[in-house]
């Protein structure tokens, strides 16, 4: 009888919980620590303070200072510690406080973390999930807003993912932490405070996908596909809403996984819409948009009605807060990109 009740309960939709992305990540971290004794959370100010964005709020009080702890201000040491702990069988979830502070850790990430599994012929896997508050949009000073996705995506042995919503953040973090490989988890700072409904059921990941791998179409459309990740997804959804007023139906593809990229989802979307615009905050040259454009051109060459357009940051150092609005792709720049693709004619 109780089995039957349990079966019925499992088929009922779980109510949505309204959470901000910081709360969703906090909740996911708590569940990971609860379920996995070998999981550890550490970084600058993540313990006593609860993180500069409150993402690790309350975790040290709940799980103890031996599982959630503060580190010195030394990112290379944070990553070195994570690598050693992973070799000893732990599942570290370190935090680099800001994307701009990841540079001192890049040596550890590239020369050790990314290749330890390869170097050891599979005997020393690195189940490390590195959380990096990423991208711009919060008027932060220099070194507190960067787009490092193409840097990390270029390194063999790393996986890179960026959630665009509380729902995605909650499920993707739990999924990333369950992986045997190192994952760079890029949290869009600009979206930390936006609340949205989160379905906490493990078998529901929402946004039109039955999987936590790959990309998701977050808005269907037929005239062109906007491809984005992180904070640019919500901006592209705004653009799609405005374009609809002009009679243009834009599809929005949330790439989610930036390494590996979901080539099948890109091909499926753009072969329907036949036009593609990729939008990112990182600089233009050798940005991840170039990789996306190459993949789309290869898979959709025969049906493409225009070259893939890139709407990106500029080839300048990521500016501090005052100049952010000039740098990060805004609604008009994305609409211009859409217009260029729509009016392109062959010959």
């Amino acid at each position: 009888m109780s089995d039957t009740l349990e079966a019925v309960r499992e088929t009922l939709p779980m109510p949505l919980v309204q959470l901000s992305m910081q709360q969703a990540i906090n909740r996911a971290l708590g569940e990971i620590l609860d379920a996995d004794d070998r999981a550890l959370v550490f970084g600058e100010d993540v313990g006593v303070l609860g993180g500069v964005f409150r993402v690790t709020d309350g975790l040290q009080a709940r799980f103890g200072a031996h599982r959630v702890f503060d580190t010195p201000l030394a990112e290379s040491g944070i990553l070195g510690t994570a690598i050693g702990l992973a070799m000893a069988g732990f599942h570290p979830i370190p935090e680099v406080q800001f994307d701009g502070f990841a540079y001192p850790a890049v040596n550890q990430i590239i020369t050790q973390l990314a290749r330890m599994n390869y170097r050891s012929r599979g005997t020393l896997p690195m189940p490390v999930t590195l959380r990096v508050p990423s991208f711009g949009g919060i008027r932060a000073p220099e070194h507190h807003g960067e787009s490092l996705e193409s840097l990390f995506a270029h390194v063999p042995g790393l996986k890179v993912v960026s959630p665009s919503s509380p729902q995605q953040a909650y499920h993707l973090l739990k999924h990333a932490a369950s992986m045997p490989d190192p994952v760079i988890f890029m949290e869009p700072k600009a979206r930390y405070w936006n609340k949205a409904g989160v379905n906490l059921a493990d078998n529901v990941v929402g946004a039109g996908s039955a999987s936590l791998e790959g990309s998701v179409v977050v808005r269907p459309g037929k005239h062109a596909t906007l491809i984005a990740w992180g904070a640019m997804v919500s901006r592209c959804l705004q653009v799609a809403e405005l374009a609809a007023e002009d009679g243009i139906e834009l599809e929005v593809l949330d790439l989610r996984w930036l390494k590996p990229i979901d080539e099948a989802a890109l091909a499926a979307s753009v072969s329907r819409t036949r036009r593609a615009i990729v939008v990112h905050e990182g600089p233009h040259t050798a940005g991840l948009g170039a990789e996306v454009a190459a993949l789309v051109s290869q898979s959709c060459f025969d049906v493409l009605r225009a070259p893939v357009e890139r709407v990106t940051g500029f080839d300048v150092p990521y500016p501090s807060g005052d100049l952010e609005d000039e740098y990060i792709p805004n609604i008009d720049r994305i609409l211009f990109g859409v217009q260029r693709v729509l009016e392109y004619r062959r010959g």
Binding site: H223, A243, D246, I331, D332, L335, V338, Q339, L342
Partner: peptide, 9 residues
Amino acid sequence: PKRRVRLSA
């Protein structure tokens, strides 16, 4: 959301 650009395709 505010915009100045309109699509004319």
